[in-house]
Design a binder for these strands. Structure first.
Lengths: 301, 301
DNA sequence: TTTCGATGGATGTCAGACAGCTACGTTATT
DNA sequence: AATAACGTAGCTGTCTGACATCCATCGAAA
C-alpha cells in the first residue's frame, strides 16, 4: 500500500467512475482498474459497489476515503514544508480576492517582491463562495476580502488578519455643480438625491451598511438603481443618472477623469477588510511573510 | 515521494548508519544509499550531516523524521482498520500485564475465545516501564496492571478502565496455631508479628499502602524482610519466618497447600487494578471487545 | 419491444522504468 | 595495514502503464 494507490482510490471515489478518474490522473483506464483491484485484494475488502456504470463507496470505502485524504494531504504538506527549509522564500504565491479588494494588492506585491524577488504571484478573483472552494482545494492560500467572509464553509475553519477599514466616499460626476468649493458632503444632505446602489446576490453587505446609516441619520435613501458591477455603476454616475457611495479603495482601480470623490464625515461605519486563510493547513513561508507584510504596515494606512 | 521511501529514511535516522539500516529493512546498502539520495534530490535538502562514519540529522532531517513517523503510523493504522471492517474480529491480541495481575487473565481469555474463537493471544509480562515501551512500539495494545500506571511516559497518554479493586488478605502458614477458629484477622492485632513485605524498585505501591494503613491504626509494622518475588515471599511464610499481606488475586496463581488466607476487615484501602491503553492510537476491534468484556463483567466481582 | 451504438469496466500481453543485487572503488577509522 | 562503511556502475527481475480486446450495461432510435 502506498500513497500513489491512495491517490488513485481517491480519484475514483471523487469521479464515481474509473475512466474519468484515469483522465484526471493522466493514465489509462486499464491500469487504474487493475490498481483498484490490487488495493481491494490487499485490504481484503470491497471498496465500491458497482451499479452498472456507477460506482458508489461501500462502508469500508467511505472510511478509507476520509483516512486517505488526511494521509495524502499530510504527505503533500510535509514535502512542501521540507522543501522550504533550504530553498527559502520562493515559488508562486496564490492569492484570491474579491473585485473590490484587488486594488489593495499591487502596492503590497511590489513591496514584497523587493524583499523576496524569487516569489511570483497568481491572483484569482471571485466571490466568497468561489474563493472558499479555491482555499479548500489549495488553488490559493490566502484571500483578501471584505469581512465577514461568507463561503460554503464554517467561519471557524479560517484564520484572519483584520486590516484597517476602508472609508466610504461619495462618487459624483465632475461636470455637475456639486458644491465644488467643499471637500466633503454630509450624508444627511443627500436625502433626496438619486442613489445608485452597488448590490448583487452575493455581496449585499456594502449596500446594507449604507442604508442602515441613512436610517440612523433619520431618512430613507432614494435608491433609484441597483447594479452589480462597479464599472457600470460609475458609468451611470458619469451619465448623470445619480451618485453612488463606495469604499474608497474600490475607486483606486479607476482613474476616470469624469468623477470626483468626496468624504462623508457623518458616516460612522466603514467597510471591513481582511486576509483569510485556512486554520488547520500548512501555510507556506511566503504566505506567512505576505501576511506579516500586511500586519507590519497596517498602521501606515 | 512514497511511504516506502519514508520508511527507508526513518530506518537510517534510527540507526544513524546506512548499512545497519539496510539490514533492518532486509535490503542491501547500495540501493538504500541511492534511495536516500533520490529523496534528498526530490526534496532539495540535505537530510543527514555525514561525519565520517556517522550520520546525524540536519534540521530538515529532524522535521521530516517527526512528520514521516506520523504519516507511516497513520497509514499502518488505516490499513489495519480497513481490513477489520470485513474480516471481523480475528487475529492476535497482544496484552501486557504485571505479574501480580496475570491471574486476572485466564478466565477472561477463556470467556472471550468462546465468543471470538478466531482471536489468539500473546501475553507479555513486565514491569510498568517495560510495558510502557511495549505500548509505544505497538508490541502490545493493552496492559492489565496495578494503578496508577508508572511508565516513562505521561499518564495523559493513556486511557484506562478501572476494575473492581482487589482486597488485601493476610497469608499465614497452615501449620501454625493462628486462631484457626476465626475467618479473619484484624490488622491492628498484628502489631508485633513479623511481616514480610513485597517490595521492589519498581513496584513499591503495595507496600506503601499497607504501611500507611498500619500507621492509620496507630502502629509501625514489624517488617523483618523485603522481598521482590511473590513466590519467595510465600516460601518464607511457609517456612515460618513471618506472615505477609497481599492482594487476594495474586494468590490465585498459587495453589500451595501450606498457606492459609484470612480477610483483614479493618483495612480500608484496596489494591487498584485496571486496563491501560494508548489514547491517540487506533485500537483494533478485538482489543475494544476485550475491554468491553471486562467492563460488562466488572459488576460480577 | 427490440436492436444497435456508445460507454465503461475487466482482462491479457508487451515494453520500459525502476528497485534491488553484486562487484568494486574510495574514504575514514582503528 | 586491516576493517568498516559509503558511493558508483552494471545487470537482472518485477512492476507499472499502454494498447488491444472482450463483456456488460445503458440509452436512443426504429
Amino acid at each position: 500500500m502506498d500513497v500513489r494507490q491512495l491517490r488513485y482510490f481517491l480519484a475514483i471515489a471523487k469521479e464515481g467512475q474509473i475512466t474519468r478518474a484515469a483522465k484526471t490522473l493522466n493514465i489509462e483506464q486499464p491500469p487504474l482498474s487493475r490498481q483498484l483491484k490490487l488495493i481491494e485484494e490487499e485490504l481484503g475488502v470491497t471498496l465500491f459497489d458497482r451499479n452498472g456504470k456507477r460506482m458508489t463507496l461501500t462502508e469500508a470505502g467511505t472510511v478509507l476515503q476520509a483516512k486517505a485524504e488526511a494521509i495524502v494531504r499530510q504527505l503533500n504538506e510535509t514535502v512542501t514544508e521540507i522543501k522550504e527549509i533550504d530553498q527559502g522564500i520562493q515559488g508562486m504565491l496564490s492569492i484570491g480576492s474579491v473585485f473590490s479588494c484587488v486594488s489593495l494588492l499591487p502596492e503590497k506585491i511590489a513591496f514584497f517582491r523587493e524583499r523576496y524577488p524569487r516569489v511570483t504571484f497568481k491572483i484569482l478573483e471571485g466571490d466568497h463562495v468561489v474563493l472558499g472552494e479555491y482555499l479548500e482545494d489549495r488553488s490559493i492560500e490566502l484571500v483578501v476580502t471584505r469581512l465577514p467572509f461568507e463561503s460554503n464553509y464554517d467561519i471557524s475553519n479560517y484564520e484572519s488578519l483584520r486590516l484597517p477599514s476602508d472609508p466610504f466616499v461619495i462618487v459624483v460626476p465632475k461636470k455637475r455643480n456639486w458644491r465644488q468649493t467643499e471637500s466633503s458632503f454630509l450624508l444627511k444632505d443627500l436625502a433626496t438625491t438619486p442613489l445608485i446602489a452597488l448590490k448583487s446576490d452575493k455581496t449585499i453587505q456594502l449596500n446594507e451598511k449604507i442604508v442602515n446609516e441613512c436610517r440612523r441619520l433619520g431618512f430613507e435613501p432614494n435608491i433609484i438603481c441597483e447594479c452589480s458591477s462597479v464599472s457600470i455603476t460609475i458609468a451611470l454616475v458619469i451619465a448623470g443618472i445619480g451618485v453612488t457611495i463606495l469604499p474608497k479603495s474600490v475607486l483606486s482601480a479607476f482613474s476616470v477623469a469624469d468623477i470626483e470623490l468626496f468624504d462623508l464625515p457623518d458616516i460612522t461605519v466603514q467597510s471591513d477588510v481582511g486576509i483569510i486563510w485556512l486554520k488547520n493547513r500548512y501555510l507556506t513561508k511566503k504566505a506567512q511573510r505576505f501576511i506579516e507584510l500586511f500586519e507590519s504596515t497596517k498602521e501606515n494606512y
